[in-house]
Simulated assay, not measured.
Amino acid sequence: MEFSYLCTECGTSYELNPALTTCPSCSKSQKIDEPLKGVLEVQPQGTLPENAAVDTEVLVQSLLPVPPEYFPPLPRVKGELWKPERLREELSIPGLYIMNDGSNPTGSFKDRASVLVSAYARQSGENTIVLASTGNAGSSMAGIGAAAGQKIILFLPETAPPAKMIQALQYGATVYKVAGNYDMAYDLSLDYSKLKGGMNRNTAWNPMTMEGKKTVSLDIFAQLGNKSPDRVFVPTGDGCILGGVYKGFKDLLQFGLIKKMPRITAVQAEGSNALYRAWKSGSFDNQPSTTIADSISVDIPRNGYTALKYLQNYDGDVVCVSDNEIIEAQAHLSSRSGLFTEPAGATGWAGLLKCKKEISVHETVVVLATGNGLKDTATALKGIKMPEQTITSIEDIRG
C-alpha cells in the first residue's frame, strides 16, 4: 500500500513529510479565528491483502501509513462494541450498540490518534511531541509517550478537569497550565513548536490525528461482523473525531468493503456548537463556548471546514443538546447499561435520545462513548444524589 497526503480543500497531493502539516497553498489564505485551511488527509492507494476483510489486525495495519514496528509496546487501541440489552428493550432499538473507547489504555478515544502520532514521530526520528488539549488528548499522548519513551510537552487550559491533569503528570509529561481556554492553549503550543521544535500533535494540524481516529470506523465494521451500521452518533467539538469517523468509512468504501456511507450525526453541546451553526448557515463565526462537556468545548473547531464538507457530501446532520440533557444522559446510560462515560461521551447518548423517534427498529445504530467517566467526577456528581446520612448499624437504615 502506498500513502500520500491529499488536501481536503484543493485536492493537491503531497508526499508524506513530518514537516508538512497543512496544504502550503490553501494555508496562505488562513485567517485568525477560523478553522484550519488546507487540512491534509492521508490517502491510501493499492490493494488490500486477501485476508484484510476477515482479519481486523491486517485491515487496520494495511490502512495505516506507519508500519507496526514503530508503534509503542501497548495492546492495540480498538475500543469495545457493547450490546446494551436493557437499553435496546427500553428504546425499542434492537440494533443498538455503544462503542466504548473508555476501555483504551488511557481511558480515552484520543489514544487512537496518539498511538499513530507516536509511531510517526518515532519513524521520523523525533522524540518530542507537543500539543494542546482540553484534557483527554493531553493525558492520552502523555500515557502513550510514556510507553514509547518520548518527551511530551502539554498545554492545558486552567479549567481542565483535575483528574486529566493529574493523569498527564503521572505519566511524566511537562504540563503548562494556560490562563485561558483551549483555543489559546492551541495557539501557544504551535508557537512553542515553531520556537523549540518537536512534532506537534494538535488536532487537525497534524494529519495523523484524523488518520488515527479513523480506526474507530474500521473497528465498528469488524466488530459488527464486517458490516456497516446504518447510523452513527458522534460527540463533536473541533470536528476531528467526526472527520476520522467519515475517513474510516470512506476508506472502507474505497476498497469495496462496504456499499454506502452510514448516516452520521454530529452531536454538539448547545454552549459549544460552532459546527451546528455553520451547518445551518454555511459559514463559521467565532463565539465563546461554555459547556460542562470539556472535551468538546471549543470556540473555533479547527477541523471545521473538513467536517462540514463531509456532512454536506454524505448527507450527515448535526443536533444540539443542553448541559442538563448531557448530565441526565450520563446517568441514564450508566444506570441502564453499566457504562460510565464522561460528559463528552454522554453527549452522543443525549443526541440519540433526542433523535430516538426517527430511528427505525430495523436500523443498526452505534453511539460513540469517547472517554471513561472517572476522568471528570465533579460533573458526574451533578447527575446523582450523594448519601447525606452516615450509619453505625443496620438499625440506622430507614424504610
Score class of each variant (00 low, 15 high):
residue 286 N to L: 05
residue 363 E to S: 03
residue 46 G to E: 07
residue 332 H to F: 12
residue 140 S to G: 07
residue 113 A to W: 06
residue 224 L to V: 06
residue 232 V to Q: 03
residue 84 P to R: 11
residue 344 A to F: 06
residue 225 G to L: 06
residue 293 A to M: 07
residue 374 L to Q: 02
residue 256 G to R: 01
residue 288 P to R: 08
residue 95 G to H: 03
residue 135 G to V: 09
residue 244 G to H: 01
residue 72 P to D: 04
residue 143 G to H: 03
residue 18 P to G: 02
residue 166 I to H: 12
residue 169 L to S: 10
residue 256 G to P: 07
residue 53 A to C: 05
residue 341 T to Q: 01
residue 294 D to P: 07
residue 391 I to P: 06
residue 261 M to C: 08
residue 331 A to V: 09
residue 206 N to T: 02
residue 357 K to T: 15
residue 337 S to D: 03
residue 16 L to Y: 07
residue 285 D to E: 15
residue 126 E to H: 13
residue 132 A to T: 11
residue 70 Y to G: 00
residue 329 A to T: 07
residue 327 I to Q: 13
residue 282 G to C: 11
residue 89 E to V: 11
residue 309 K to N: 06
residue 199 M to W: 13
residue 257 L to S: 05
residue 246 Y to H: 03
residue 70 Y to S: 01
residue 159 T to M: 06
residue 223 Q to V: 11
residue 305 Y to D: 04
residue 298 V to P: 08
residue 219 D to K: 09
residue 54 V to F: 12
residue 275 L to P: 00
residue 178 V to E: 14
residue 85 E to M: 12
residue 74 L to W: 09
residue 39 V to D: 10
residue 112 R to S: 00
residue 168 A to N: 01
residue 182 Y to G: 10
residue 111 D to H: 02
residue 77 V to H: 09
residue 146 A to P: 08
residue 166 I to Q: 12
residue 208 M to Q: 02
residue 167 Q to K: 13
residue 321 V to N: 02
residue 149 G to E: 03
residue 149 G to Q: 09
residue 220 I to M: 13
residue 226 N to D: 13
residue 60 V to R: 01
residue 361 V to C: 08
residue 167 Q to I: 04
residue 245 V to Q: 11
residue 255 F to H: 07
residue 295 S to T: 14
residue 55 D to T: 04
residue 208 M to E: 02
residue 203 T to I: 02
residue 279 W to P: 06
residue 36 L to S: 06
residue 339 L to N: 04
residue 45 Q to S: 15
residue 7 C to A: 06
residue 118 S to G: 02
residue 330 Q to L: 13
residue 76 R to A: 11
residue 108 S to M: 10
residue 169 L to F: 04
residue 284 F to T: 03
residue 86 R to E: 15
residue 123 Q to K: 14
residue 78 K to Y: 09
residue 368 L to F: 07
residue 17 N to Q: 05
residue 10 C to S: 04
residue 238 D to W: 00
residue 234 V to M: 05
residue 383 G to V: 10
residue 253 L to Q: 14
residue 49 P to I: 05
residue 112 R to A: 00
residue 17 N to M: 02
residue 58 V to S: 14
residue 180 G to E: 14
residue 41 E to T: 11
residue 80 E to M: 05
residue 79 G to K: 09
residue 234 V to Q: 00
residue 242 L to S: 04
residue 56 T to P: 08
residue 367 V to H: 08
residue 30 Q to R: 05
residue 33 D to V: 05
residue 77 V to C: 07
residue 301 P to N: 08
residue 341 T to R: 00
residue 256 G to I: 01
residue 318 V to A: 07
residue 169 L to G: 00
residue 211 E to D: 11
residue 3 F to M: 09
residue 221 F to H: 14
residue 110 K to N: 01
residue 181 N to D: 12
residue 132 A to D: 13
residue 207 P to E: 11
residue 130 V to H: 14
residue 196 K to M: 12
residue 102 G to S: 02
